[in-house]
């Protein structure tokens, strides 16, 4: 197998780490994967990841870093890269093929994705589960399904449209509370609390909180704090959206 040059290898490692961080992987997993890729390509690679920057050192001489950004979850990306790095370690694909795949992923910044209407239906399904806990009658499930879809749709499109990061969550929290209160005022449902609880479920920052706690326990304090603050801000912006609707109406 032809050995990659240090320059090409450091580029490859940076791109892989960038994709993994943007897919929502834990930082210690990213570092581990990069070091294993370097090992199976025959070089000594060290990697240090905070969420906002990635540092790479190859064979104690070539240093590089790349700026990255918080946000985005794409579990398919993590799975793809994980499978490829495992194949690389088992020598079923060569270094050139691996580089080609990573370059392709890096250029497009996306993998196979579900169409939007399927994601919206998924959001509706997530909203229905909390109704079971409060043992509500059947029609609550149906209203919650639709309110959840509306909330998710608003946050999905606004997050692509606007530059201000937390505004989409504030607005969708506001709209969800508004819809729930309207349903109650029209006399369709008897109370709005459970519908709000259910419909905000798809917006909950589950990935960020889970990763933050795991990283904190694995002693990656910097990235864990960044993610923790982010998830706290997400949760409170949804909460303040709901609160302002409750105060106004």
């Amino acid at each position: 197998m032809k050995k990659l040059g240090t320059h090409a290898l450091s580029d490859l490692c940076l791109k892989t780490a960038y994709l993994l961080v943007n897919g929502g992987a834990e930082t210690y997993r990213v570092e581990d994967t990069i070091e294993r890729i370097g090992h199976s390509l025959g070089s000594d690679v060290r990697c240090y990841v905070t969420v906002t920057a990635i540092f790479i050192e190859i064979n104690h001489q070539n240093y590089k870093f790349i700026k990255s950004r918080l946000g985005g979850t794409n579990l398919q990306m993590i799975d793809d890269i994980n499978t490829m790095s495992r194949q690389l370690a088992e020598k079923t694909i060569t270094g050139e093929e691996f580089t080609l795949h990573i370059n392709h992923l890096y250029r497009n910044k996306r993998t196979t994705d579900f169409p939007f209407y399927i994601k919206a239906i998924g959001a509706g399904l997530v909203s229905m589960a909390p109704m079971l806990l409060y043992s509500m009658p059947l029609y609550y499930f149906i209203y919650c399904f639709f309110v959840g879809i509306v909330g998710y749709t608003i946050s999905y499109y606004l997050s692509r449209l606007s530059m201000l990061p937390y505004a989409d969550l504030f607005i969708s929290g506001f709209v969800i509370a508004l819809l729930a209160i309207t349903l109650k005022d029209l006399g369709i449902t008897t109370q709005y609390h459970t519908i709000i609880i259910g419909a905000t479920m798809p917006l909950v920052p589950g990935v960020a909180i889970t990763n933050a706690i795991r990283e904190l326990v694995m002693r990656h304090a910097v990235s864990s704090m960044v993610k923790f603050l982010d998830s706290l801000l997400v949760a409170s912006s949804i909460g303040f959206g709901i609160a302002s609707a409750l105060i106004i109406f």
Binding site: N74, L75, Q76, D80, L125, V126, Y152, G206
Partner: peptide, 17 residues
């Protein structure tokens, strides 16, 4: 049924394989 469906629903949102 609903517990399974809602877990699958969130996996659709996060684009799980």
């Amino acid at each position: 049924v609903l517990g399974g469906l809602s877990a699958i629903g969130f996996s659709l949102i996060t684009n799980a394989p």
